[in-house]
Design a protein around this nucleic acid. Structure first.
Lengths: 155, 155
DNA sequence: CGCTATCCTTACGTTTACGTAAGGTTGCAG
DNA sequence: CTGCAACCTTACGTAAACGTAAGGATAGCG
């Protein structure tokens, strides 16, 4: 059901994707994607009329991937994730602003905000990594102790 | 409600703890502890008659701490956690076996099983840490890129 | 233009991990 | 022995994060 998917599409085309494709690419379900849209985690293409098919870009896929990744790696609720990524949505808006931002001061402000946002995320990720490293070290100590005791048995 | 808790207890006594104390020590609730017992995550002191108060040792507190920690750090369901710690419960049993295990071969087997169990845990923790490190690196790259672009603005 | 796979909305169902309330019991201080 | 705080069991409630089913619309191929 995926081997005959080879149509006559040039592979580098920015062909619009449907929700099922996105789901499969990311490794999740269509329900999940719709749910994320429902709660505002995903933007939910504004100009879509009720009843029409959702369509996605590669960038959207990346977005979903990021969400799923953060969801799995950090233990955040989707609401916390929303708040964390809210800033990122704002940043996406700013990207569009970027092209028309003439003054250096404007651009600086945009970059500064992006930096702050990345910083927030980094802090979260880093803290959790440290905790995991601690746990890892403890487990390694435990293991060493066991090895030692095994060696003592051989003496 | 905790400042007048200073009774006439020698501080190093292995005084049996009640569920409320354990909960506060660990930073959780009594309900959670009872729930964990209910689903078999906590052993639930076998020789307790129905209706009598649960009582815990410092070792039990450590156990609950470990569970909560693993729950928060790895994103496992309590059932997965159960399976992961099942081996550890078995190990606790083996500790008691240890004293009467006369032969070196027996002791070796016990240590080997403990080692395997720690290994399993280590693998999980390590994998997750690696994933977090990857994410961290990506975020740092992003941040660097932003810094660069800021510097370019100053040029 | 028709077919049909995939999508749409709506809405109720489900699992996990507890919260909370009720009504009774235990255990320790006084 | 008595009082009362903390505990007990039982059982229903709940929030999050989707699953699933029904009934109908869309879109791309032929």
């Amino acid at each position: 059901m995926s081997a005959k998917d080879i149509h006559v599409f040039p592979l580098d085309t920015e062909r619009p994707l449907r929700i099922g494709e996105v789901a499969e690419l990311v490794g999740t379900t269509t329900r999940t994607i719709r749910y994320y849209e429902e709660i505002g985690l995903l933007p939910g293409s504004a100009e879509r009329e009720l009843g029409k098919h959702r369509c996605y870009t590669e960038a959207d896929v990346a977005r979903v991937r990021e969400i799923v990744r953060l969801r799995d790696l950090l233990g955040l609720s989707l609401e916390q994730l929303s708040r964390l990524l809210e800033a990122e949505s704002a940043r996406a808006d700013l990207r569009r602003e970027w092209k028309v931002a003439e003054s250096g001061a404007q651009r600086r402000r945009i970059l500064d905000e992006a930096l702050e946002h990345v910083g927030t995320q980094l802090e979260l990720v880093r803290d959790r990594r440290v905790e995991l490293e601690q746990l890892e070290a403890e487990l390694e100590a435990k293991r060493s102790s066991l090895h030692e005791r095994l060696a003592e048995l051989d003496a």
